[in-house]
Design a protein around this nucleic acid. Structure first.
Lengths: 194, 194, 194, 194
DNA sequence: TATGAATGAGACTTCATTCAT
DNA sequence: AATGAATGAAGTCTCATTCAT
């Protein structure tokens, strides 16, 4: 299986593992190359710099996740269903790919992620989460009523628990099964709805 | 005021600022020494290594926070009051000390923090949060009923939002005032209580 | 016109431009290939190594210049005319081809050029300048008398100014017109003649 | 003797030798450190970068030369004497320090030197040569008359031969004695004077 | 002939830590 | 206790050259 992967994919996989395990700074390019089975210089055929590589992996993982819930959400009718499906699919995906999750989290806590976040808020970058849209639509249709709280506070009560659980799982401190995920989603729903 | 600080305190302060701002790896000891107004070698009079320094700062900040809510919680009567006061005091403190918060968060996402966490769960280290105790007490007194969820899931729905909001604030994406903090606390309370 | 050039010529042209602009070391083979519109490996079909390429360009430029003044000099009768025509044609040619001039100069200041020079003096390589011959002939014919100075000192007073002016021109610090070139040639003539 | 030199001086000396011998690019910092008898990192205690080191050496050598002829020139009365002393002292100094000469020449042909030259011409940097001043003064005093040629052409007929001779000497192709130097100076004087 | 991905030696530079003063 | 020059291992990245296609 590894034999079939192109060199770029091997590098990305190796980098994701080592960058996550040791941190962005503590994973040398030489080790990444070794693990990928390529020469040190080869990485630079595919990426301009270590920063570039780090960002490329982030983009790859984020796109993967965005594609995921875009498909999932179509199955739902009501606003609540959409929310629950969204929450479940994101958390399940994170639980199924703990490495991906830890990579994303590390990236978002790094200077890169922080400036990206700044751009998202200021509108330079598109918001990758559809959640605000789902709520707005539900309110417009008078299907739901939302608590009178700043949007970012509501989001904190949805994504905060989600990420906290994903982290516990990724670090091996709990095991998330479908039932637990669903219960957590219900709690999050209640946090937002009036 | 700075004049009164001993060299050790000056080093800790300088290190906290630079380690937070640039990340653990991107803050050289020499710069930390410069900012503290001491020679590079002097740091090693007080700390055995950079890792040592990083850990010492963590311990200092954690103790500071533990002392804080231990005092605050005494003021409360009911379980809910204790919870609300706890939530508010932690979040207010984080909001008032964004640098401290970001340091703690960075530490906990690093290899250091993760192994520390492992030790806490396995009982080698004391749990620094009194929340489980507060709930247990309330349940025992039949004052409250808790949702039938694994403890870590409940904790995720309390600390998840709390940390998410603290981060937003620390990064300057929202401004937390007392009213917002209280509302968030109420939502978290509802997440836990049956 | 570029369309008609063979790959070898395209490589030589691209290399000359980039090697001159950035220096021998700072012009990567890959960039030379890019600019020439060929693959990196193709250069090695025509040249054994970068050093080889560098030397081949030098030889090409030197031959070009030698052919030039061999033709020009036939037009002259007197020794002085030969000298003036030689000086003018060399300096005009350098002024008209600043890139060629800078390449030659860079080459001659490099280890390559220095060992080549050594070979010329020791007789292993032919002297590319006909100047000594012109003077010797004039003296033999009793047409002129030369100052009693070592040959290399005389040459320094001819080629020194010539090259200094060519450099000023190549770097854009002065503009050499025909009148200026002629005046400089006259001064050089006076430097040599008793 | 070498024992008395400070580390900075040892580095400069080692660098000057190796940079001159192999060219700026082909002399690695590690070798420079080896020859200076210091660790690789030590160079960076004294210089910020290789470029910095290269420039620092240039400045040191240029200052040395400027100090030299400023002292020498005071001995002279007439304009011609000033010129001859200047020419002789510069050429003697270059002949006595071939390494310094070759370093300066290499620097001036490099991108650094060229942009420095640009700054000198545009007035941003002071002209390090007093020659124009000497001539202007002589003309003002009606002591001499200068050929009707652009200043840069006159300078080319003075510095061109001077540098050509210094190079021949530095490369070991001729041996400059005081008599030869004086004769060359006289020829240069005639090139400039009407 | 021509390609260009891959190689890997080697360049510059950083920085935690030591130690003579 | 304090200094800060010195160390040298380790990191990122470049680039001449090769070779399977």
């Amino acid at each position: 299986m590894k034999e079939k992967m192109g060199k770029r994919d091997k590098i990305i996989k190796s980098a994701m593992i080592l960058l996550t395990k040791h941190g962005f700074h503590a994973a040398p390019m030489s080790k990444i190359a070794d693990r990928a089975g390529v020469a040190a210089g080869t990485i630079y055929t595919y990426f301009n710099s270590k920063d570039d590589l780090i960002e490329a992996i982030f983009i790859e993982l984020r796109n993967e996740m965005m594609n995921l819930y875009e498909k999932e959400i179509l199955k739902a009718d009501t606003t609540k269903d959409k929310f629950i499906i969204f929450y479940k699919s994101v958390l399940s995906h994170m639980a199924a790919n703990p490495l991906h999750f830890r990579y994303l989290e590390q990236y978002q806590n790094s200077p890169y992620g922080i400036s990206l976040r700044r751009d998202t808020l200021s509108g330079k970058e598109a918001d990758p989460s559809p959640l605000s849209g789902i709520f707005r639509e539900g309110v417009a249709k008078k299907e739901i009523e939302i608590k009178d709280l700043p949007n970012q506070v509501l989001m904190a009560h949805v994504f905060g628990p989600l990420i906290a659980l994903a982290r516990e799982h990724a670090l091996g401190f709990i095991r998330l099964d479908d039932k637990t995920i669903l219960m957590s989603a219900e709690v999050a729903w209640l946090s937002v709805i009036k």
